Simulated scan of single mutants.
Amino acid sequence: MTTKVSPSFARISPRNSAHNPINIFKECKKQGRPAFISGPMVRYSKLPFRELVRNYNVDIVYSPMILAREFVRNEIARCSDFTTNDKDRSLVVQVGSNNVVDFLRFIEMIHPYCDAIGLNCGCPVKEQVRSGIGAALMSEPEKVAEMIKAAKDKFGDKVTLETKIRIHKDIQETVRFVKMVEAAGVDWITVHGRTQTTRSSQPANFEAIKIIKESVSVPVVANGDCFSLEDAHRIANDTGVDGVMAVRGILENPAMFSGYKQVPWGAIERFFSIGVSYSLPFRVFQHHLSTMLESQISKQLRLELNNCKTLVELIDWFDAHFMLRRSTEEGYGKGVEVDYLVRPKENECSFNL
């Protein structure tokens, strides 16, 4: 069953404490590893993608950021912005908000349907910053602390809260920020190792993340430059963090935390089945597939994939070039290499044999 949040509040099963991110951090620590986390992505970390990555050793998955002001006021926004089901665990719903009233109303409506709520204090998109949300909050630690404290005062342990931040040019300003939100009651902090203006082509600052980890007692998650399982372990070892979040890396390879260097063919088959079942918007569906296969098929084939105009055309195209197994067929979801019906000549294929 799929649940779209609306005033009727369709019921799903109560949350299991084992899915609470704080308990997941503790369990992963016992296993001698960081928690593996799929981060929030506008348009792309929707329910079908969240279900896909859970097949590949992901512990915690985020929703895309939801704007609190629109969500609490508009039923259409509620139905379009958030969809979940009983398998959607452990789930962190990320929210963009800049005031206590909207934040508390959002939490009241959403908390029965997720395992934690994350306040976005790091999104650098100019439109969001101009609205006073995302990275705009990095210069207002008092406001963020006020929002966290108000939520904890009202909901107590019923709600687990995170803040996702970026670093300041002066790391001591970031340390002051995290200490304030920790004192306000935040349960864990995610740190993107870049400033608001740092380009993604520049390396993330893991030394800064290490300093932040050493400055607070709540769990800390590192975000930035994680494209493989090896990256995740290296980042955790270098910083001492409790979890490692991937965003661009897991969009390209949803199986990265299972140790796959490239997306396995079985993940493509699984995504087809899940995406069609949940009626994922076609262009989002197509973009996921194109991104996953970018380094494994030729430019010509990728161009043809991107030129498909409908889901039917896309399925026909895949069936004409690849062995795309359905969920009822033997071997479904198990393949590793791209399963061509007729393998291209060596100079027509860009994937590494």
Rank of each mutant, 00 (worst) to 15 (best):
K4I: 08
S8Q: 13
P21M: 01
I24N: 02
K26D: 11
R33M: 12
I37L: 01
G39E: 02
M41Y: 06
V53C: 08
R54G: 09
N55Q: 10
N57R: 10
D59T: 05
P64C: 10
L67Q: 14
R73V: 02
E75K: 13
N85A: 05
V100L: 09
V101M: 06
D102E: 14
E108G: 11
N120Y: 08
R130I: 02
R130W: 07
S131W: 05
A136R: 00
E140P: 01
E142H: 10
K149N: 07
A151H: 01
K152Y: 02
K158S: 12
K158Y: 05
E162V: 01
R166W: 00
I167C: 01
F177I: 05
A183V: 02
A184M: 06
G185Y: 02
W188I: 07
V191T: 00
S200R: 07
K213G: 04
E214A: 08
E214N: 12
S215G: 03
P219F: 04
V220G: 02
A222G: 07
L229T: 03
D242F: 03
V247G: 11
N253L: 10
F257E: 06
F257K: 04
V263A: 15
R270N: 14
Q286H: 11
H288N: 09
E294Y: 13
K299C: 06
L301M: 13
I315F: 11
D319Y: 12
M323F: 15
L324A: 06
Y332H: 15
V342M: 10
P344N: 03
K345R: 11
K345S: 12
